[in-house]
Amino acid sequence: MSAASDDTMTRIANDRISVEISPLGAEMQSLKTADGRNFLWNGDAAFWAGRSPILFPIVGKAPSDTVMIEGKPYPMAQHGFARRSTFALAASDETSCRFELASSDTTRSVYPFDFRLAVTHSIDGSKLTISAEVENRSDRPMPFGLGFHTAFLWPLPGGEGQAHTIVLDNGGEPAMTRLSGGLIDPTPLASPFTSGKLTLSHDMFDEDAMIFAEGAGTGLTYAAEGGPELKFSFDNLPNLALWQKLNGPFLCIEPWHGTAAQNGTSADLESRPYTVTLPAGQTARFAFTAELPG
C-alpha cells in the first residue's frame, strides 16, 4: 500500500490499521482497524470538536491567557497555538508521515523563539506511534510544554454495555489533582485507582479532568471488560490526564510533559509545573504508542 494525500488529509495504512491525519494541527482524524472499526472520536462539535490535538508550547491554561517570557507578557490561549496552526507535510510513505511547523512572524508575536515542531504518525502491525520532536533553533534556552490530547471512543467498538477500565502497568495509586478556573489546584486528592485499576464512570468528570502529575507510570490499558482493549506506552511524558466533556461518548487519554499553571502562581512560563527548558540547538522527543485489538 502507499500513502495517500490530498489538500486536506494524509492516509497511512497496512493490513491491520489505517490512520488519517489533517495538516491542521497535524491532528489525527481517524484510527481504524482492517474490519472498519474506528477507535477515534469523530469530533462531533455538539460535545467536543477536537479529536487528537497536539498541545504546544503550553499544556492547559495560563492565568488570564497570558504567559510571561523573559519578563514580557504574551497572549497564549489554552493548550497553545500548534493545534490551530497548519503544518507542512515534510515526508510520507506507506506507513508513516511527518508534518512540521516552523516558527514564523505570527508565532514569534506570541512566543519569541525560533523552533521546529515535527509530528510523526507511524504504524507497525496493530501499533500506532505518535511522536513530537521540538527543536530549539534560537540562541538561548527555550521553555515549553508538550502534550497529546487523543480522544478514544467510550464505549469502545464492540464494548457497548460493558464497564470500561484504566489499568496502570505499574499498579500504582497516584494522587489526583483537579482544575479550578482552568488552573491546577495543587491540593492532592485521594487516588481513584485501587492497585492500579480505575473503573470509569461519567460522573468522575463532573469536576473536569482528572490529573495525575506523577506516579501513573509509562504505560496503561484502556479496556471494556470482556471486550476490546487498547494498550499504551509513553516516552518522556511523565504527566497523565483523563478527560471527558458533557457526558460525551469518548475518553481523552492525555500524556503530557507540562501541566496548566497552578492557581495563585505567576504567569511565568518557566515556573509552570514540568516545563521543559531546552538548550539552544537541542531537540527533545516525546511519544506514545497505542496498540489496537487484532
Rank of each mutant, 00 (worst) to 15 (best):
W243E: 11
L242R: 01
L183A: 00
Y222D: 00
E254K: 11
A224G: 15
S266Y: 09
L183V: 01
S191K: 10
L198I: 06
D268T: 15
A241S: 14
H149I: 10
P157R: 00
G227Y: 09
P228F: 02
D208F: 06
L230D: 02
E225A: 09
A241Q: 06
A261N: 13
A216L: 09
I184H: 07
T199D: 13
L156F: 01
F205Y: 12
G227N: 01
L189K: 12
A261G: 12
Y222N: 01
H164W: 03
D208L: 02
P255W: 00
L189S: 09
H202T: 14
G264L: 02
D268C: 10
L246F: 12
P157E: 04
G226A: 03
M176G: 12
K231H: 14
Q244E: 14
S233Q: 12
Q162R: 15
G219T: 02
P249Y: 15
C252V: 13
M204W: 03
E229M: 12
Y222A: 00
A163E: 11
A209L: 07
Q244D: 13
L179T: 11
M210G: 04
E207G: 08
G172K: 06
L198W: 06
A267H: 08
H202W: 10
G196N: 10
G264P: 01
D185K: 09
L230H: 06
G161R: 05
L237T: 05
D235A: 13
S191H: 06
N247R: 15
D185I: 08
P255V: 00
W243K: 11
I253S: 03
S271Y: 09
S233C: 10
H164S: 02
L230E: 05
S201Q: 13
E229V: 07
L153T: 10
A261T: 13
S266M: 03
A224Q: 05
L237G: 03
S195H: 11
D235Q: 11
W154C: 07
P192C: 03
G217E: 08
S180P: 07
F212G: 00
G217M: 08
T177D: 10
P192N: 02
L198E: 01
N170V: 03
G147H: 01
L230Q: 06
G181M: 14
T177V: 15
T259N: 14
L246D: 15
F193D: 01
P186R: 02
A175T: 07
G161M: 05
N263R: 15
G158P: 04
R272A: 06
R272C: 02
D268P: 13
D235E: 13
T259V: 13
T221S: 08
P186V: 03
G158I: 03
A151E: 11
A190R: 12
K197C: 12
R272M: 08
W256H: 01
N247H: 14
T221Y: 04
L246A: 15
F205V: 07
L251G: 02
